[in-house]
Amino acid sequence: MATAARKTAKPTASKKAPKKAPKAPNTEELLGYYREMLLIRRFEERAGQLYGMGLIGGFCHLYIGQEAVVVGMQSTLGTHDKVITTYRDHAHMLAAGMDPKGVMAELTGRADGLSKGKGGSMHMFSSEKNFYGGHGIVGASVPLGAGLAFAQKYQDTDGVVLAYFGDGASNQGQVAETFNMARLWSLPVIFIIENNQYAMGTSVARSSAQTELYLRGASYDIPGEQVDGMDVLAVKKAGAAAVARCRAGKGPMILEMKTYRYRGHSMSDPAKYRTREEVQKVREERDPIDHLRAIILKRKGVDEAALKEMDGEIKQIVTAAAEFAQASPEPDPAELYTDIVKSVNA
């Protein structure tokens, strides 16, 4: 597990990134991150529970353990920046501000789901919240994200795009293809490798000749940085610098987030590829929520009671989402044939 020490890879040709000294986040900001991370964890735990009850079907990939990555990155974005990710996507939607009820109802395959029950866990979208999926094919979010960035540049905005993918996807050919074009055309995209150490059951060391994934841009003259993805403040700091660099027109960047997922790849993971002790050790020593909680409790004006109140509030939101997702009806059979193609005059 990476320590908090940051590693960076800067191509010789690139200038040093401007070092801004970001001011320490105030307590209110910290509480905001805490709340977001807690919402994600409680939501995912509940999703796991509903899956076990047979209310969620198919694949269900939980984000528990990785919360700091998406919360830290989302905090760096402006209103016209865009996000795209893989199939481990519930957290990204919640962080983007999409309704937990709508997300949970999609997981249960109901009419009030964000995709009317037709997309499921891996396929939700919201152009209103600048969230572009939710993609089930490993690696697909990378060229698609670069395409969103192409559009940002084409439309002369200064918007940036976060394209998330995993350590497994980083070995995909289309990822290498996209790195090349993104740098060639200086696209405003940040490639975020959520390195949770395992592609399904295959560890990075067993799948990647170069295990330092932030170096993957070297052949394409893309700078990379390795970040402690269990520390939301480290993520935010690195993310903010990358976003500023990208927004200034300096082209793509790679952020490798060293993180860990506590649960299996999906719900049907036999967990034979790692020990229970390994998981337990990370939970005890590196948990992103506990880490932030400890920082917050050192601040003045916040006590256990305040955090407990927040816990209760989050629990209510998640319970309401779960109830909504079970009460919502199944989609009308007529929905089978809707939204296949847009009518020409639409």
Partner: peptide, 17 residues
């Protein structure tokens, strides 16, 4: 790089191009 640029084209289309 057909796989890559086809994907980029689709992403650009998502964004309204």
């Amino acid at each position: 790089t057909e796989h890559g640029f086809a994907g980029m084209g689709v992403g650009a289309a998502y964004a309204g191009l």
